[in-house]
């Protein structure tokens, strides 16, 4: 059987109050996880405008993950609820654009959950590796494009 060697590019938006610190903890605790996630630090998961996600896809991301604080723990009270409402609507919209739902994920990871961060990134990595490249033109050279 052929082994899958695809190295996906995953863009992660990490809330600076929780997941960003959780990722830091995973790092300082020397936990191992795939290096394929490019972290972008944001003030809150509620700051992630759906256009950021679309831009990531248009610039070559194979998947986008929004990381925020557990529900009820948002530094700004409501930000992660906002993120959750947008996420479900955006997911439906990208499916109509031919993008598989697993290419957009939302995860809650607190500052103390380094291990959870490691686990989630590894899981998402395997899922996206399985899906293969997003490749919006699907390898089809566009004569006009």
């Amino acid at each position: 059987m052929e082994t899958n060697t695809f190295e996906p590019k995953i863009v992660g938006f990490l809330c600076r109050w929780c997941t960003y610190q959780g990722a830091d903890l995973a790092g300082t605790s020397r936990m191992e996880y795939p290096p394929n996630l490019i972290p972008v630090r944001v003030m809150c998961s509620g700051r992630v405008d759906p256009s950021f996600v679309m831009q990531a896809y248009s610039e070559g991301a194979d998947a986008v993950v929004i990381f925020g604080c557990h529900l009820g723990d948002c530094h700004y009270q409501e930000g992660n609820y906002k993120a959750m409402r947008r996420y479900h609507l955006l997911k439906k919209m990208i499916e109509e654009l031919g993008i598989e739902p697993q290419r957009l994920q939302l995860e809650w990871v607190s500052a103390s959950e380094g291990e959870r961060y490691q686990k989630e990134v590894s899981r998402i990595f395997s899922e996206v590796r399985e899906l293969g490249p997003l490749d919006l033109n699907n390898g089809k050279a566009q004569s006009n494009g």
């Binding site: 405008d49 759906p50 256009s51 831009q55 906002k82 959750m84 409402r85 947008r86």
Partner: peptide
């Protein structure tokens, strides 16, 4: 506004009257 549709996702989601997934 860079992307009309993506921006509407924000506007519309903001008036959903629930925090329950």
């Amino acid at each position: 506004i860079r992307d009309q549709g993506a921006k509407l996702v924000s506007s519309l989601a903001s008036i959903f009257n629930t925090n329950d997934e």
